[in-house]
């Protein structure tokens, strides 16, 4: 008898104090840091699911058990809101991302791209990853998109894109600044911060999903993202904010 009661209570137990967060790969490392601080401050635990923004969007749309979606763009959260999977009015910009061109050897701005003859240039899949889309826009505005087609390799998300370069399989890669600013990132190399006027701003938005509506910890965490602790961590990874 008690076993039955206990089993029935389990979902509720697991519910309180746990937030399932789907997070774009570029934001995983800062979010891990934020999650640690958040747990210290509130006792609530974040469970992180990372991937490309496009993939997480598709999963959320098909009822994946996420409370919150921290996307790498504003398009997918807006779509979820419109499609009735996200809670209307909860969507906000939590950070503005920056794109860098990174390589293990010396990277000298657009010259490095102009001089690419052999070797591969890694970008994230422009269809599913916002940083990949931004990379495509940069290459287009520099007039290299067509010319560099034979050199392009596409990572499934921005984490795989970084990994292609870090393992020496690609010579250069367009990755998120947050990845190379990660204090645990041990690869030296060098990077070029792409001027922001070369691509549409990478506006990263968060939204509370329907499942999170019943979870008070989820709403509390969204508040926390606005706070100084979270913002300082994000800033240390190279993110900027709307008001700046």
């Amino acid at each position: 008898m008690w076993v039955v009661v206990w089993i029935m209570a389990l979902p509720q137990l697991a519910w309180s104090g746990e937030v399932y967060v789907a997070v774009a790969s570029n934001f995983l490392s800062p979010l891990k840091e934020i999650a640690t601080r958040y747990k210290e401050d509130t006792g609530d635990r974040l469970i992180l699911i990372s991937g490309s923004t496009g993939k997480l969007y598709a999963q959320a749309r098909h009822g994946a058990p996420f409370d919150i979606f921290l996307a790498g763009d504003s398009k997918r959260p807006a779509l979820l809101e419109r499609e009735g999977m996200g809670v209307i009015g909860t969507r906000f910009t939590y950070a503005i991302g920056a794109l860098v061109l990174w390589g293990l050897e010396r990277v000298q701005g657009e010259e490095s791209l102009a001089q690419m003859s052999k070797g591969k240039l890694a970008i994230a899949n422009p269809k599913t990853a916002p940083y990949g889309r931004a990379a495509q826009q940069v290459l287009e505005s520099l007039g290299f998109w067509k010319k560099l087609q034979p050199s392009l390799v596409r990572g499934e998300n921005i984490a795989q894109t970084l990994q292609f370069v870090a393992t020496g399989n690609a010579m250069l890669g367009f990755v998120a600044k947050s990845q190379v600013e990660d204090p645990r990132f041990k690869f030296k190399g060098s990077h070029w911060e792409v001027p922001v006027d070369m691509h549409e701003p990478i506006v990263q938005q968060a939204i509370l999903l329907n499942r999170g509506l019943a979870n008070s910890s989820a709403k509390q965490f969204l508040e926390y993202l606005h706070g100084a602790v979270a913002k300082n961590i994000m800033r240390s990874y190279g993110f900027r904010f709307l008001e700046e």
């Binding site: 598709a58 591969k120 269809k127 596409r154």
Partner: peptide, 26 residues
């Protein structure tokens, strides 16, 4: 293939990767 292919049309984008891509973008 997902890990070592790099999703290059005509070179490493095989059927299974193409399906994955299509599903991803709905």
């Amino acid at each position: 293939v997902l890990m070592v292919g790099g999703n290059i049309p005509g070179k490493t984008k095989v059927i299974s990767i193409e399906i994955y891509d299509r599903v991803e973008v709905l």
